[in-house]
């Protein structure tokens, strides 16, 4: 048994050291503060009210520039929105309608379209990357469906990104930057200063501030709450399976622990006559 523990520990150390290495390699990203998320931890669950508030923030603020193309409108039912509300929301967008009875998809040079339905994927704000760049002075607002998984410490990073803007580049930062890099930090025209974005300059102007969105459930409309709620919503968009995954995990682990104990007892018994 002792030997087995040692081997398990050894395996874990081997894995961990490799992991720590690769994690470090992911970039010189600035350390971000860890936040309390309802969905982290062994029993983590989404807070549906929070997801709904987050959706509101996404819909009213981010959706103008960022798409969620992996998410279908019907998925929004999972965060507790009513079917009516989602149908109404989907119908605000247009998708290609496909061929009409004459087999045409384009009539008089116009693509045939219809309002989006529950089964459609969420329609992105721009038709393609070029169109997005044109509307954002050359910068490209990435799709957000997988954003929390596509960054190291995803949710914590996102929250920090949204809250760590500065109107003016702080003096202390300028000094530290010069000491470290030997040259002045200059913020180019049209860029905003952000403490956690790689390179400290981001082409997205601070999207959220106090009272960006009106909450209906009485939650304070602070910058922090907006950022937290939209991050939780985006984490749901990236990992809608999280609750099912963790709750299955708990059941499977209980089973495996019992099984291991029983197998160990059986092993002891079978081996009791070996000298």
């Amino acid at each position: 048994m002792r030997k087995f523990v040692i081997s398990a520990v050894f395996g874990a150390v081997l894995a961990a050291s490799a992991v720590v290495g690769s994690a470090f390699a992911a970039g010189d990203a600035v350390k971000v503060e860890g936040q309390d998320w309802s969905f982290s931890g062994v029993f983590g669950k989404y807070d549906k009210k929070q997801l709904q508030r987050g959706f509101l923030v996404y819909k009213d603020v981010c959706a103008g520039c960022h798409g969620l193309r992996q998410v279908a409108y019907r998925n929004l039912l999972e965060i507790g929105l009513t079917e009516e509300a989602v149908k109404e929301y989907a119908a605000e967008f247009e998708v290609p309608a496909g061929p009409n009875d004459d087999g045409e998809t384009i009539v008089d040079g116009e693509l045939l379209v219809r309002p989006a339905k529950l089964s459609d994927k969420m329609v992105p704000p721009f038709a393609n990357e070029q169109a997005a760049r044109v509307s954002n002075s050359g910068a490209f607002p990435p799709d957000l469906s997988l954003m929390t998984k596509a960054r190291m410490n995803g949710p914590d990073y996102l929250y920090a990104l949204l809250t760590k803007y500065e109107e003016e580049v702080p003096e202390a930062f300028l000094k530290e930057y010069k000491e470290k890099h030997g040259e002045e930090f200059v913020l180019p025209e049209g860029m905003s200063f952000n403490h956690v974005f790689p390179g400290y300059q981001i082409a997205m102007a601070q999207p959220l501030s106090e009272e960006s969105v009106e909450y209906e459930d009485g939650t304070e409309p602070t910058l922090e709450n907006h950022a937290k709620d939209v991050t939780a919503f985006l984490n749901w968009a990236a990992e809608p399976e999280l609750e099912a995954r963790k709750s299955m995990g708990v059941k499977v682990m209980i089973f495996l622990l019992l099984l291991s104990v029983m197998l160990f007892a059986l092993k002891k018994r079978i081996w009791s006559d070996v000298h």
Binding site: S22, L146, A150, A238, R245, K246, V252
Partner: peptide
């Protein structure tokens, strides 16, 4: 169940 992307690289979700 609890750290499915721990051993992967975030960039592969781009």
């Amino acid at each position: 169940f609890w750290a499915p992307n721990f051993l992967g690289h975030p960039d592969n979700y781009i």
